[in-house]
Structures are given as structure tokens and as C-alpha cells.
Design a protein around this nucleic acid. Sequence first.
DNA 1: ATACGAGTCCGTCATCCCCA
DNA 2: TGGGGATGACGGACTCGTAT
Length: 285
Amino acid sequence: MSKCGRKKYIKTNLRQMTMETIESQQDGSVTDSVAESESAHMQTQTGQNSIPTLAQVSVAGSGTGRGSPAVTLVQLPSGQTVHVQGVIQTPQPSVIQSPQIQTVQVATIAETDESAESEGVIDSHKRREILSRRPSYRKILNELSSDVPGVPKIEEEKSEEEGTPPNIATMAVPTSIYQTSTGQYTATGDMPTYQIRAPTTALPQGVVMAASPGSLHSPQQLAEEATRKRELRLMKNREAAKECRRRKKEYVKCLESRVAVLEVQNKKLIEELETLKDICSPKTD
DNA sequence: ATACGAGTCCGTCATCCCCA
DNA sequence: TGGGGATGACGGACTCGTAT
């Protein structure tokens, strides 16, 4: 797998691994979390052992610097020891309220990874066939939140903005986009400038021409109409993608917050259990 | 200084899925 | 059932930290 392809693979599995983290994090053991993810991933990647096995675990304490790799040996339940390369994902400074919790993304390198990587890149269509679409993260979160009270649902835009939890930092989303005389779209705020490939027919956001199909005569007009529709669709999709990513970030923050809460709960329960054990156990001396 | 790896962001395409 | 919004997946550009 190419460098970029592997990177995408890691990104692709982030959500899945996050869910596994939540399921397994009550144990509190890094090794077990990795092992569970390992086995789960092996099931989903049958026949594709050239793809690195991935896991995401939550660890307490500080990690290394941003983007700095760390190599760890992890023992699986089967007794097999794997090399784990971990990279600290530094959260936004104002995002995580519990500084002890950091998300670590780990990738175990399967033995056949090197050889498979040298075989070349699968074309994108084949990859699309291999990588089946997973359920929407919004759906997952909503299912989660229906099970567990206290987990906010990702709802429609309005309620989401109004009901943002106080510990989650909202991101600035620029909305003012206009067309310059050169066909260049510029956004106010922090969005970078970008260019439309065929600016001749591009329209500002929200502008819909009232050209009905019956009013089009020449093939040129039809082509222009098609181009215009395409530009409009691309523009809408561009904005939708931005919004989608913003919501996804919020979703990830929500999961991270939930992990932090559950870890605290788990710790308290363990302490409580120890206390009760001390009370109930007969004194030996 | 520079090469390199890893992470992030963005635009686009393909597909899912809801609603009129 | 078609249209359109939502989102997974992909690839490219860019940034940043580290090693040399």
C-alpha cells in the first residue's frame, strides 16, 4: 500500500476504532484494547492481511510531542507480540477538558505489509469495492445516545448550534462566500481562497437561475445549462462537505468527552469496590 | 538546510438514505 | 421513485516535528 493509501486507511478506520475503544476502555488496559481491536479488525479484513492492523486506545498521562512516533511492544491474547507504532493526536487546546486523556492512534505492521506495499497500488474502484461503506457516524452516535442518557445527540443544524455542550468548543464556520470579478471565490473569515475550475458559469451560493429546459434551444445552451448545474452541485457539495466535517469533529469531541467521563466513573467504581471488599472481608489478624 | 514521515484540510466523487 | 442532502472514500496540497 502506498504511503498515502495507508494514511487514508488509518483515517478510514478511526471511527471504527473509536467505537471499539469505548467498548473496551472500561477495562482500562492498553494491551487489551489493542488486542480486542486486533481481533475485531482481523475479522473484517479477511484475506487482506497486507493491510496494517489498527487500533485506537486511550491512555492516561502525557505523551510525546505532536506527531512524534513511539514504538511499543504489545502482547496479544494469543501470545503473539506485535510492534506497535503510536502517534499522539494532539487535541485542540480548548477541546479536551480532562488533560489526562489523550487519544493514541496505533498501527501494527503485519508481516506481509512490506511485500504488499511493493506490489503497487490497487486502483480506486477496486478499493471502493473492498472498503464497504460503514454506518453513518451520526447514526452511531444517536444509537449510542439512545442507550445512554447524557450523551448528546447530533441533531439538525439549529438545535445543534443552540445546544452545544459547554465543554465543547465550537468552530468558526465562515459563511460569506462571493464571486470576484476574476471568477475567484473568496471567503471572509478563516477559509482560504479557492478557484472554480470553470468559472464562466459559476454562480454565487444560493443563486438559482430560472432557466427551464423548454427555454433551451441550441446544444450550446444545453451544455451551458449542464455546466451550470454541475457547478451548482459542486458548490453545494463543497459546502455540505465542510458542514459534514464540522459535525464530524463535534462527534469525535463528544466521544472523547464520553471516554473521559466513563473513565472517571470506572475509576470511582473500582475504588468503591475496593472499599466494599475491605469492609466485607474477614480480618485475618 | 533539507529530506521524510505523519497529520490535517479541502475538493470531489460515489453512494446511501430520507422525503416529497 | 426520483431528487437532493449527508457522508464515506480518495487524492492532493500543505504544515509541522524530527532525523540526518
